[in-house]
Amino acid sequence: MKKILLIEDNVDVRENTGEILTLAGYDVVTAPNGKNGVELAMQEKPDLIICDIMMPELDGYGVLHILSKKDETAGIPFIFLTAKTEKTDIRKGMNLGADDYLTKPFDDTELLNAIEARLRKSDLQRKLYDTTEEGLENFIRDARQVLRLEDLCKDKKIKPFKKKAEIFAEGDTPLYVYFVRTGSVKVFKSHPDGKELITNIYNANDFFGFEAVLSGNVYHESAIAMTDCELIVIPRHDFLTLFQAHPDVSSSFISLLCKKVAEQENQLLHLAYNSVRQRTAEALLKVEQLRDARQNIQISRDDLAKIVGTASESVIRVLSDFKDEGLIEIEGGKIRIMQAAKLEKVVRWNVAR
């Protein structure tokens, strides 16, 4: 049962509203003023707070300001209940972080609809979603209910791509965000002289292609399937609707963006200062997820060289050294990592110990 804290100094309004909420199946806690309301909010940790604005001792703005500064109450949905209807009052409440604003007099349906909408949205924001196809489906389903958009992601499709098939090219206008269902995808930058540098490899349960959608620019990289793969394709408009409407969506993708920036900064640093031997060891560890059923890494020497940022011949020489040292095995052109810990030491110290 959801718990609601009702802060209202008018006895009649407090009792009538409390009765409505109780009949609707909520556990109701009431406070006659703002000061008492803050104390009860800290004690009871309600699922939602309904608060009048004009009250003695501490008004509704003060209540919201205090609770929004405390970690344990900052995330509780907050609805203002007041007779004041001026736009400046509404704007002040929203700027402080209120989730909704109901004006007196209000009817039962209006009140209950506002509460249900805020509780649904709060549940969605608190809910953790796995970065799997099932987690994506669950999130889209819940978001449809909260946003009341039944058509959200209805155009989402699963598209197969054959190995070496182009997904998008540098300079293309972004129309979709991609989620890897199966297989692997490489994203790379092209130099005017025709050389390529692989900047990222995406495997099952990874999102990619969203940076250009968020920035509103063309793709600055190209994407090609490294293996036969299946991608869930989410239309640009639907993705932006989710991103803009839900803090949990935006925060998760901001985290991904920050992670990608950090990875690319490390990659640039390593290209500048690490030896080919170090970079090759790091690339092998990075592509380890491309293993087949026999634990062999399926990647061409050309692609491996594009990750390392050097010529294929240089990578082949380093791979031969690693084989002689017992760090890897090579059979039929496929690579199997035998001593991952020693490859990690190569990355750190340039010495296999």
Rank of each mutant, 00 (worst) to 15 (best):
T85Q: 12
V213T: 00
F207Y: 15
E116D: 15
D99G: 02
S320G: 09
Y26T: 06
K70M: 11
L327V: 02
E39V: 13
R148E: 15
L327Y: 09
N266D: 14
F188Q: 06
A340L: 02
P160Q: 11
Y273W: 14
R348G: 09
F179H: 07
K189G: 02
I90T: 02
E8V: 07
G326N: 04
V287R: 04
A311C: 03
S68C: 03
H65L: 10
I316C: 07
N350L: 12
N36D: 15
E166G: 05
M338R: 12
Q289Y: 14
L147V: 07
I201G: 00
K69W: 10
A283F: 06
F208K: 00
K121M: 12
I232M: 15
A143C: 07
S312D: 13
D324I: 09
A262P: 00
S222R: 04
L256G: 07
D52S: 07
E344W: 06
L23M: 13
F106T: 01
V308P: 03
Y219V: 03
I198S: 02
I90M: 13
A24T: 05
D108N: 11
M338W: 10
T88S: 07
D107W: 08
T310H: 08
V180M: 06
K323L: 09
A223S: 04
S184C: 05
D59L: 06
K87N: 07
T103W: 05
K92H: 09
L147T: 11
T173L: 11
I140A: 01
L21H: 10
Q145G: 10
K84F: 01
K45E: 12
M94K: 04
D27E: 13
I328H: 01
K306N: 14
L128T: 13
G333M: 07
E166Y: 13
C153A: 15
N33Y: 08
I254Y: 14
F78I: 02
I234T: 04
R294V: 08
F208I: 06
L269S: 14
P32W: 11
S184F: 11
L48F: 09
S320L: 09
L119P: 07
V308S: 04
L284S: 10
D302W: 12
S190D: 06
R141P: 03
K189N: 08
E19K: 14
V276Q: 02
L112R: 10
H270T: 03
L112Y: 05
G93Q: 00
E57H: 09
L290C: 09
V28D: 03
N113C: 04
A272G: 08
D108L: 05
Q289L: 14
K154F: 12
D123K: 11
A340N: 00
I337C: 03
N33V: 03
G183T: 02
T17M: 09
L96W: 02
E133P: 03
S312K: 15
R91W: 08
N95E: 12
Q43K: 14
I337G: 01
F208C: 01
V177Q: 07
